[in-house]
Nucleic acid binder design. Structure first.
Lengths: 229, 229
DNA sequence: ACCTGAACACCGTTCAAGT
DNA sequence: ACCTGAACACCGTTCAAGT
């Protein structure tokens, strides 16, 4: 029996879409850490080397996957100057909800600035809402950055408690630490304990975006674009 | 020559501190991804198995390293009700500066809630400043969460551009994407282009924290602690 | 108690060899 | 053009064997 690099006939060609879909499937079921080139390849019944025809590397695959998730956000409603704030809060909540469906995907937009078409559409839509609200140009531009950092970080933090079996173990450990706080060492935490443990994820997220929008409406537009001006 | 599990005499015992310091050294020089058990062990001239006497696993080591970084933040100044806002902005800027010295460490507090002593001291100090400012209790408690998410995310985002050799390549790619924006597809981005490319990291970070504090001072305290109340 | 070597079960990525 | 097997250079973690 002659040895060859081929034990079975070549399979029909894959596609970027097939690779991304396989990645999303693994992501949804097992979280971002399970999305390895080998695991995704196995999902497609092939070897890891085959994926490199369609994606540059793992990071490239993750970026493509994130943009697919961004594509799940509903942007069909036109900005309405009378309801822009409500629309904005809804949009940000929807973005987080989309990321919540794919545990850990929020690490991707934190690790590099998303430039995929769906991410760009989302940013453009967000800017449109701020313009409908007559927000100053530079404030609007910088606000997009700030609020995306918050939304992504909030989504990522939640995904840890969802992703693995240690969800409750983690939460318990934190609560235990809080319960055992020494009032001499941490007087402010001890005094504010009821407030610190109040509210769930959704309430705190809603508080965060309301706070940021109120801040936007109550801040001077930033000065100084280029240094020295 | 008889084979044994021992080729050289055992070394003097290590310590948690020595392991954490070695980790911080690797982190500072080569970034968070370089901090592997094997790399840190090599720094101590031993094998990876030796580290498990002092740390539970890699995540535990990273948590200890983060708390050491948190310990570099100056908390010596007492909260002053007349200058609390200035002190708060300074504290948040210092926290980020500390993380900027250790590229990628900001991923740690994003991945699990820090419960180390220095992290707790920092949180307690932040709460103290908010109390000096007579901020409502629940607003203060929830604000700590929100603002830490922002500071950590901002620190992590910057660390990518610092960490590796592809810093300029990444930045150029983003700027190229921005320069080629199709006004028909992304009308708002096209219209706000000058604003979108204005400002540097520090200006945007300062804008973010000012915005959040203004938001805090212009928001109703959140209602509803436990669901249904 | 702690250090050590070896092993296990994984990684991402490259490349020559096939079709 | 694209699939494939094998290899390279890494991982985290465990464990029996030493001192």
């Amino acid at each position: 029996m002659t040895r060859s690099t081929r034990d079975r006939p070549a399979k029909p060609p894959l596609s970027v879409e097939a690779v991304v879909d396989a990645g999303l499937h693994v992501l949804r079921e097992e979280g971002i850490d399970a999305v390895s080139m080998r695991r995704v390849a196995a999902e497609l019944d092939t070897g890891p080397a085959s994926l490199y025809v369609y994606v540059q590397n793992r990071q490239d695959l993750l970026n493509l996957m994130f943009d697919a998730v961004a594509g799940e956000v509903d942007l069909s409603e036109r900005p309405d100057p009378k309801r822009w704030r409500e629309q904005l809060e809804r949009l940000l909540t929807d973005i987080r909800a989309a990321m919540d469906r794919y545990p850990g995907i929020a690490r991707v937009p934190l690790a590099n600035v998303p430039t995929g078409p769906n991410s760009m559409k989302t940013a453009d839509h967000l800017l449109g809402l701020l313009r409908a609200g007559r927000v100053d140009e530079r404030s609007a531009a910088w606000f997009v950055d700030v609020v995306f950092l918050f939304v992504n970080a909030a989504a990522f933090e939640r995904s840890i408690y969802v992703a693995e079996g240690d969800a409750e173990a983690q939460l318990e450990e934190v609560q235990e630490t809080f319960a055992q706080i020494d009032p001499d060492k941490f007087p402010n935490m001890a005094a504010l304990m009821p407030a610190l443990t109040s509210g769930d994820d959704d309430q705190r997220f809603a508080f965060g975006i309301r706070l940021m929008i109120n801040g936007l409406l109550n801040s001077e537009p930033p000065r100084a674009g280029t240094p020295g001006s």
